[in-house]
């Protein structure tokens, strides 16, 4: 069975019927992304593989936890991945110091994944477009806003912990996060507007 033309939510519907092929298709679409996010948080390839396995097996066991009404599949998948990664990182006592955070979007050239055996070039293009847009949006943020956002999202730190770590007042950190995310929103909405008009 060829799943090339299936939307993510259609594949998820098939998971309810324990369709292993549909599961394999979802894995092919998103395993690199899930693995990369996990790796960014836990900074260890073996641990990142374990997280990736956990995340996909959770998708397989409990597909009903995804609710299309509340957002896209990839959004949900990446939230699950991020949260699981942070849990694992906390339980293994890994507290990455600020300077130990791996490089981030816009700070280094992207490693292009091998697409030769991925079966879905159209989807890969959509994902790549979306990734490029987010990276552009992040690029325009002032460094201190970007840092606060990354320490929260990839570092698993609360605003108070970020304030402590940076030696800044809590209010300052809150403002940086709020302003940074607002700019992200505007940048992403502008892009969506352009997409609709083009």
């Amino acid at each position: 069975m060829d799943y090339t033309g299936f939307r993510d939510d259609e594949l998820m519907d098939r998971l309810a019927g324990k369709d292993l092929g549909a599961f394999g298709a979802l894995y092919d679409r998103y395993s690199d992304l899930v693995y990369s996010v996990a790796l960014r948080v836990v900074a260890d390839t073996h641990v990142a593989e374990d997280v990736t396995q956990d995340v996909f097996l959770r998708v397989w066991r409990r597909p009903e936890q995804f609710d299309l009404k509340r957002g896209k599949f990839v959004t949900w998948l990446l939230s699950v991945t991020r949260n699981r990664s942070i849990d694992v990182r906390r339980s293994t006592g890994r507290r990455l110091r600020r300077e130990a955070l791996p490089p981030v979007a816009g700070e280094e050239e992207d490693v292009i994944p091998s697409t030769d055996e991925r079966d879905d070039p159209a989807l890969a293009t959509v994902l790549a477009d979306e990734r490029r847009a987010v990276r552009k949006a992040l690029e325009v943020l002032p460094q201190e806003q970007k840092l606060a956002i990354q320490l929260a999202y990839f570092g698993g730190l609360t605003q108070q912990e970020i304030a402590n770590q940076l030696g800044q007042p809590l209010g300052t950190v809150k403002t940086r996060i709020r302003l940074g995310m607002q700019k992200m929103r505007v940048a992403l909405e502008e892009r969506r507007g352009r997409d609709r008009n083009s």
Partner: peptide
């Protein structure tokens, strides 16, 4: 807001997962 936050995850440098991992995950499933 969840979608915006998840989009930050989308910006990570992409690294390919190993083929062995797929075999492991599919066998476990």
């Amino acid at each position: 807001a969840s979608e915006r936050a998840a989009s930050i995850a989308m910006a990570v440098p992409l690294v390919s997962a190993s083929h062995q991992l797929k075999a492991r995950v599919m066998a476990a499933a």
